[in-house]
């Protein structure tokens, strides 16, 4: 920026953090409007439900990633951990034949346990989060293949398992809008995470850690314990994603998962959460995840060639972060 820049921002109003959410939200609206105008098939109940369904797994993963990223950390293991949790559910339900709630509980506990391990390695052993979760990513990928015998585990013996994601409790009350349960679970997880972030000590320390970890330590807070807590909670949320994807596919696919962490991180970043920590919102992440799936779905409906879909998604990620940088510059 040189002295030729317009003197427009002389005493511009203070732009609050809400602005970025507004920006992401208006981006989402703009996309929806553009696609609706471009194709009559876009704004159909069935298609909107398909978009929401496509958002559910990535949305839940992104929420987990948001928690960790706000602490200034990163979790590369969310994708393969999701698979691991799905496989655990498969073992409990299909191999052991136990009742469905135990399978769900098992998946969530497996996620929490893995988060505890990651958090402990990061907080106690001081291994940087990038490395620690990269290691966990591979460990979990391998364990999923080992436990499953490298074959998908099908849930054919657990009737109703695929209703967790695909069924619609809402549809029984309002038959016109059969919102899949998976989507309602996403919203429930989002509400829970937003509550924890905004209203509980765990949430407060999540922001505080990302803002200035040393200051938190000097304030007499048991930094390690809370940090492990954040990773554990993120792990538990990933466990929910594991149940969702297993239910949707009616199987635990052990080879799946790697690469999903990047989509989750993309949703977080588009939603305005800073990778350097200290700031972020669940609502933003939800919008970020929706932008990704609206984009993918809309471009498909418009029969845009797949090569170009990828290019456009990349552009949106860079644009979103650039918008965030502009926002900071004007702050």
């Amino acid at each position: 920026m040189t002295d030729t820049a317009a003197p427009a921002v002389k005493t511009g109003p203070r732009i609050s953090g809400a602005f970025h959410r507004l920006l992401a939200f208006s981006g989402l609206i703009a996309l929806v409007v553009a696609f609706s105008l471009a194709s009559p098939n876009f704004m159909q109940t069935q298609n909107i439900l398909a978009i929401l369904q496509a958002t559910s797994v990535n949305g839940v993963l992104a929420i987990a990633a948001t928690l960790v990223i706000i602490t200034g950390g990163i979790d590369l293991s969310v994708g393969t951990l999701m698979t691991f949790c799905a496989v655990i559910a498969g073992v409990i339900l299909t191999y052991w034949g136990l009742p469905m709630p135990l399978g769900i509980l098992g998946a969530i506990l497996a996620g929490t346990a893995s988060g505890l391990v990651s958090g402990t390695v990061i907080a106690k052993l001081k291994v940087p989060p990038f490395i620690a979760t990269l290691g966990m990513m591979l460990i979990l990928k391998g364990l999923s293949l080992v436990i499953s015998g490298t074959r998908p585990i099908y849930f054919n013996d657990t009737p109703g398992f695929n209703q967790i994601a695909l069924g619609s409790v809402v549809g029984q009350v309002f038959p016109a809008v059969p919102v899949p349960n998976g989507v309602m679970i996403l919203f429930a997880v989002a509400l829970l995470a937003a509550f924890v972030l905004g209203k509980t000590a765990l949430g407060r320390y999540t922001f505080a850690l990302g803002s200035n970890e040393e200051a938190v330590r000097l304030s007499g807070v048991n930094v390690d314990r809370w940090k492990i807590g954040v990773y554990a909670m993120a792990g538990g949320i990933v466990g929910v994603a594991g149940v969702l994807i297993a239910s949707r596919l009616n199987s635990a696919q052990p080879a799946l998962g790697q690469g999903y962490e990047l989509d989750a991180i993309a949703a977080v970043v588009i939603g305005g959460t800073s990778l350097s920590g200290g700031r972020g919102t669940i609502l933003g992440t939800l919008i970020g995840a929706l932008i990704i799936s609206v984009l993918a779905n809309g471009l498909r409906i418009l029969s845009v060639a797949q090569e170009w879909q990828t290019v456009v998604t990349g552009c949106i990620i860079i644009l979103a972060v650039y918008a965030d940088i502009l926002r900071r510059r004007t702050l």
Partner: peptide
């Protein structure tokens, strides 16, 4: 300064004993 920049003044003061 040992403050958490992204938190409010009050949140900083009572960090650890909210």
């Amino acid at each position: 300064l040992a403050l958490m920049r992204d938190l409010t003044a009050a949140q900083n003061i009572f960090i650890g004993r909210e």
